[in-house]
Structures are given as structure tokens and as C-alpha cells.
């Protein structure tokens, strides 16, 4: 096969670059726990979208922020046309936050702008995101998957406040 030596060199370089990038991805994944949200270890976590409000984790009374014994925080939310409920959420900075969210109706997606809190929100399945917020401030939690004619009106307030001592 006729391949110019410079092209051969290029192909080697591409191979090395690919290995380096994949290496960084695998290293940060397995050593630092850097993954996109999955929540599907042995099997995906399923849920009935039609019965969310009735009982269980996503019942209306259970939505919002709760603090665990070790200081970490859980945020339980439901996405439904056209908002993320509850529509205002407040978490402390520099604290492990676990967001659990599902959809009442169609597919949504959320991204808390300028942070790593992001996920697809699929009716029938539960999404889990684990992250931490360093900067206090008020962030927009914006819907980023088409969910109907009101998609661009769908957003909630995500507030990060200074962590108070002793928690």
C-alpha cells in the first residue's frame, strides 16, 4: 500500500492524540469520578410518570431541598410543562448536591447555566446528578429540550448561597 512517510507520521500523531484524549477521559472518569449523569447501573431506574404526584419520592410535598446528616444536600424536582418544580431552589455552596428529577409529561432537559448541573429528563425514568457549586449566586435552570410551544418559557431559579458554618 502506498502511503507517504509524512502521512504515516500524521496517522501516528492522530493515534497518539486520540490515546491522550481518551486517557484523560478514562483517568478523570475512574480516578476523579467525572461522568455525565447515568443512573443506570444494573438497570435504569424507572418510575410511573402518571402517578408522580400521588405518593413516593416525587409527591408534591416531597419536592425541594433536604439536608442529610453528613451535610450533603438532596434536591428533588419534577419537570412538567412549563417549569421545574419547585420553581425556586436554594442550596449551599461548596456542598455535595444530588439532584433527582423526572418528568410528568414529555421529554425535557435542564442545564443550570454556567454549572455542571445538567441532565435529560425522561418520563418513565429518574435522572440523578451529583455535583457541587463553588460560586454563590442566582443561576438560571433552563429547559433545553423541545417540549412544546412553551419550551422557551420554561425555567426556574437555582440559588447558591454561602455555606453557613456548623453544617
Amino acid at each position: 500500500m502506498h502511503v507517504d512517510p509524512f502521512e504515516k507520521g500524521w496517522i501516528w500523531l492522530v493515534g497518539i492524540i486520540t490515546v491522550i484524549m481518551l486517557g484523560v477521559i478514562f483517568y478523570t472518569a475512574f480516578m476523579w469520578g467525572v461522568h455525565p449523569p447515568s443512573n443506570a447501573f444494573a438497570r435504569p431506574e424507572t418510575i410511573d410518570p402518571n402517578k408522580l404526584h400521588l405518593s413516593g419520592e416525587f409527591a408534591e410535598d416531597n419536592l425541594g431541598v433536604t439536608t442529610n446528616a453528613d451535610g450533603s444536600v438532596n434536591v428533588t424536582m419534577v419537570a412538567a410543562r412549563y417549569g421545574f418544580y419547585p420553581q425556586e431552589v436554594e442550596v449551599p455552596a461548596d456542598t455535595p448536591v444530588t439532584i433527582r428529577i423526572t418528568s410528568r409529561d414529555v421529554i425535557h432537559g435542564f442545564h443550570v447555566k454556567d454549572t455542571n448541573a445538567a441532565s435529560m429528563v425522561i418520563p418513565g425514568y429518574v435522572s440523578t446528578v451529583e455535583t457541587q457549586f463553588a460560586e454563590p449566586g442566582e443561576y438560571g435552570m433552563l429547559c433545553n429540550e423541545y417540549c412544546g410551544l412553551g419550551h422557551h418559557y420554561m425555567w426556574s431559579r437555582f440559588k447558591v448561597v454561602e455555606k453557613t458554618q456548623g453544617t
Binding site: 472518569a29 455525565p36 443506570a40 435504569p44
Partner: peptide
């Protein structure tokens, strides 16, 4: 970013995606 496929499968496809860039 979807919650119904596991990390392992996503990583496997990710490696394949890098291969198709070659």
C-alpha cells in the same frame, strides 16, 4: 446525558466515536 443507559455503554460508544474521527 440520558438516564437509561449505563456509564459503561456510554464509554464504549465514546471510544468508538473517537475512532471514527481518525
Amino acid at each position: 446525558m440520558d438516564p437509561f443507559q449505563a456509564e459503561g455503554w456510554k464509554l464504549l460508544h465514546g471510544v468508538g466515536t473517537f475512532l471514527v474521527a481518525v
